[in-house]
């Protein structure tokens, strides 16, 4: 499977232009200011990036930090998906169930996941499980909402075709509702992965964590090492970009039919 097509590669080149420009402006400003506590030089940031396996500020290496964060994100994201997809399928299929659950969902949804942190610490203690809870809280709603929308967006005529051929309820679900809703579920997963990634960084900034990219950024901030913060941000951004590229490729590959008739 080709992940990036030739025109996509050309677009990459165009996108790279702005990045290079921003880096140049940054570097120029850093050279003028000459103060590492305000604006670290690009070279210092890259010096951190180019030694991904070396301990950073006497703690875990960049790779170790990234692995910790990624593991937390994937676990929390996976838990959220396992809960949100079935629940979304049920709510989307039954107006009755939706009537019972929607008000509670709509009230909980706008609450920033990080606001749950005190509760999470009280219930799960400091560390991995609290962070998982926060991530799952953040990842849950985009998947749920998109799954519900996906099911409700399944065309009536498709369902009628199933009815016309006397499909059983389960067959109608398996052959029409689920495949019809799948592109939206995929979109939900994609959005939610981005949210999960933001949550992990925020959650790790809280005291008590000992590794992870969010931890690293907070630790570097306490020590005034802004070039490490810059490096951490770049790693977060690159992992996010990579994940999004994978999701997009999946969309192209499996759901090219979406919105076309």
């Amino acid at each position: 499977m080709v992940l990036i097509s030739r025109p996509a590669l050309r677009d990459c080149g165009k996108g790279l232009f702005l990045i290079v420009l921003l880096l140049a402006v940054w570097e120029a400003a850093a050279l003028v200011i000459q103060n590492n506590y305000i604006l670290p030089q690009i070279g210092d940031i890259f010096a951190v990036l180019f030694q991904p396996a070396a301990p950073v500020l006497g703690g875990p290496s960049m790779i170790e930090n990234a692995t910790v964060s990624l593991r937390e994100v994937l676990t929390g994201f996976g838990c959220a998906a396992l809960l949100a997809i079935p629940l979304g399928l049920v709510i989307g299929s039954s107006r009755e169930v939706g009537t019972y659950l929607n008000p509670a969902i709509q009230i909980l949804r706008p609450v920033p996941p990080i606001a749950w942190m005190p509760f999470a610490i009280a219930w799960f203690g400091i560390g991995f499980h609290s962070i998982l809870f926060i991530i799952a809280m953040g990842a849950f709603f985009p998947i749920l909402i998109n799954t519900v929308d996906g099911v409700q967006g399944v065309r009536r005529s498709w369902v009628e075709v199933a009815g016309m051929f006397h499909a059983t309820t389960f067959e109608r679900f398996r052959t029409v509702i689920l495949p019809g809703a799948l592109p939206m579920i995929w979109t939900g997963l994609r959005v939610s992965f981005g949210v999960a990634w933001m949550c992990v960084v925020a959650a790790e900034m809280l005291p008590g964590t000992t590794a992870g990219l969010g931890f690293l950024i907070m630790y570097a901030y306490n020590l005034g090492q802004l070039q490490v913060i810059g490096a951490g941000m770049i790693v977060i951004g690159l992992i996010g970009l990579f994940a999004d590229t994978l999701f997009r490729a999946g969309q192209e590959r499996f759901f090219s039919w979406q919105g076309r008739d």
Binding site: M164, P179, F255, W257
Partner: peptide, 15 residues
């Protein structure tokens, strides 16, 4: 016996 219907907008499953 079962009838079968052809809809105005084909209603094929796009996937």
């Amino acid at each position: 016996a079962r009838t079968a219907m052809v809809f105005q907008e084909h209603a094929l499953f796009p996937w």
